[in-house]
């Protein structure tokens, strides 16, 4: 079992990129969750799908586009999408949350139409949607590594600003932080992270890798730093066990990772509840 992972190149690539993604995604996730905008990841990943579908369609129609990978067009879409979403929210003054399902639906609808115009649904499209163990090539791995490094570097560079913004946007802006600029940079980071996680977990499941570890860590940690540590730890555990399980049972990789993450969250929540009950029982005894 473990031998396979050491022996086959594609499994090694999957494992290595899994480690990288398992570190970058939860870091972005912690910021997103604290800022209460965890749904942005969902939206951007759907917009990325629209871009990927455009790429596939263009490849089919014009031989010129064979050079450009659909993923890069997807990234471009989510970069633009991230900047547009804020404007969309302003359309419905009293129903801000409406913008989100609309963007989700429109981008999926658009992609489905384009895909039906191109080749229809083949294995390739499903790999983009749900991820695949075999989808990471050597070249992809290098890209993933490079982009992850850039993202981490920028986060370290802007850590104080991001930290401040996440907890108190007004105070941050009044203390001279360029809120708009930092927000735009952060959205770009989210788009980049989505584009590198796309191969393994798939477009429909990326957001879970971003939000679920952060949600688990939120239950356990007492400080911001602890939250980072726990969420990275949990996501790595989930990615490893998800990769192994999906290879062993021959089931979808991304889905398995998500199910492992949800199980971890469920266990944490149930244990917390049990502990609370125990404490209250103890208290009752003391009172009696």
């Amino acid at each position: 079992m473990l031998n396979d992972f050491l022996q086959f190149d594609f499994l090694q690539n999957a494992l290595l990129s899994g480690i990288i993604i398992g570190i970058v995604c939860p870091i972005i996730g912690v910021f997103l969750v604290i800022r209460r905008s965890s749904l942005i990841a969902d939206t951007l990943s759907h917009v990325t799908f629209a871009g990927v579908a455009t790429g596939l369609f263009l490849q089919k129609q014009f031989s010129f586009f064979q050079v450009i990978s659909p993923v890069s067009i997807g990234t471009a879409f989510s970069l633009v999408g991230g900047l547009v979403i804020d404007r969309c929210k302003k359309i419905f003054r009293s129903y801000e949350e409406l913008a989100l399902p609309i963007i989700l639906a429109v981008s999926i609808g658009y992609s489905v139409v384009l895909i039906s115009l191109a080749d229809g649904f083949n294995a390739n499209v499903y790999n983009y949607l749900f991820g695949s163990l075999t989808a990471v090539s050597d070249k992809d791995l290098k890209w993933i590594f490079a982009i992850a490094l850039i993202v981490l570097f920028i986060i370290l560079l802007l850590f104080k600003e991001l930290f401040f913004l996440s907890f108190d946007e007004e105070a941050a802006s009044s203390s001279g932080i360029r809120v708009k600029f930092v927000n735009i940079v952060f959205t770009i980071l989210v788009a980049l992270v989505i584009s590198i996680s796309l191969n393994i977990v798939g477009i429909l499941l990326i957001s879970s890798l971003i939000t679920l570890p952060a949600a688990c860590a939120l239950q356990l940690s007492n400080s911001f730093k602890q939250m980072f540590l726990y969420s990275i730890l949990i996501s790595l555990v989930a990615i490893f066990s998800g990769l192994f399980l999906s290879y062993y049972f021959d089931i979808a990789t991304g889905g398995t990772i998500v199910l492992v993450l949800s199980t971890i969250l469920l266990i944490i929540l149930l244990m917390k509840q049990a502990v609370k009950k125990l404490i209250s029982i103890e208290r009752m005894k003391v009172i009696k």
């Binding site: 209460r36 969902d42 879970s208 949600a215 889905g255 929540l269």
Partner: peptide
């Protein structure tokens, strides 16, 4: 369970539903 971050329940369940269906279908 998430008293001060109640909106996080939505993405969690979005992910769970999609993950479960993908695994079951595969």
């Amino acid at each position: 369970r998430f008293p001060s971050f109640s909106e996080i329940s939505i993405p969690i369940l979005l992910a769970f539903g999609m993950g479960l269906s993908v695994v079951l279908f595969s």
